[in-house]
């Protein structure tokens, strides 16, 4: 109880500061995922269409994923220096795997009969992509973005080590203080909250975007939770 009161006290004293860091961390994650989507979705589509390349690309993305986040930040820092850009770039790298993999899986899982149907009715390649492949794999792609966003929100916390700011700053400050439990919590709680809210919002967005979502069972891709 005591701790909780201390946390609330911290918020009342540093409300704007916490909000600033919250927003900053969210932006870093969002940018990372956004850039990864811009790069990863086309790559996913491309390797889905050129399946021979897929093992190479996917294992590369896999390798990136396995690098410990601190190590990754440290190495990137050597090249890019301190600051939020380095963090965004590392978040970008972490987001690539779920996004590429889900895009690839989603598009690969579109029923072959539907592709042939579309092609046979006179769709161009681009029309097949736009009118058949993307709408039908949208929910899987969205699931990838969702996973990526949640991963990056967590990872962004350590951005504080290279001076990028974010809620990690607060947590770090707590660990340095002599009796910092409340401060640590004051940073950790919003981080967890952000992840939950992001998850919820992405779910909502997905529902909005996928037409006739309740019909998903009827044509459901089994690949929804790939990552």
């Amino acid at each position: 109880m005591e701790t909780l009161r201390e946390v609330l006290y911290y918020y009342s004293e540093n409300g704007w500061y916490v909000w600033d860091q919250f927003f900053r961390q969210f932006l870093m994650s969002a940018y990372g995922v956004l850039f990864a989507a811009i790069v990863g979705i086309p790559i996913g589509i491309f390797i889905a269409h050129h399946n021979r390349l897929s093992p190479w690309v996917l294992s590369l993305a896999n390798i990136i994923q396995t690098i410990p986040s601190l190590a990754m930040l440290a190495v990137l820092m050597l090249v890019m220096g301190l600051g939020p850009n380095t963090v965004v770039f590392s978040l970008f790298l972490y987001s690539l795997l779920p996004i590429i993999k889900n895009t690839y899986t989603g598009i690969r899982n579109v029923d072959h009969a539907l592709l042939e149907s579309g092609k046979g009715m006179g769709m161009t390649k681009f029309q097949v992509l736009r009118m058949v492949e993307l709408p039908l794999s949208l929910s899987v792609i969205m699931a990838g973005l969702r996973t990526a966003l949640i991963i990056t929100i967590g990872v962004a916390t350590i951005g504080t080590f290279i001076g990028a700011g974010g809620l990690g700053d607060i947590i770090l400050r707590g660990t340095n203080a002599s009796n910092g439990t409340a401060i640590i919590l004051a940073g950790a709680i919003p981080t967890a909250l952000m992840a939950i809210i992001a998850d919820f919002l992405m779910g909502w967005l997905e529902k909005k975007l996928v037409p006739g979502r309740k019909k998903k069972k009827a044509w459901g891709t089994s690949a929804e939770k790939i990552v």
Partner: peptide, 20 residues
């Protein structure tokens, strides 16, 4: 593409688009 638009095509598995 033009040719196919002039020819009706029904595939073996019907192939209706589930999202339309």
């Amino acid at each position: 593409v033009k040719l196919r638009r002039k020819i009706g095509y029904v595939i073996q598995q019907i192939g209706l688009f589930p999202h339309m």
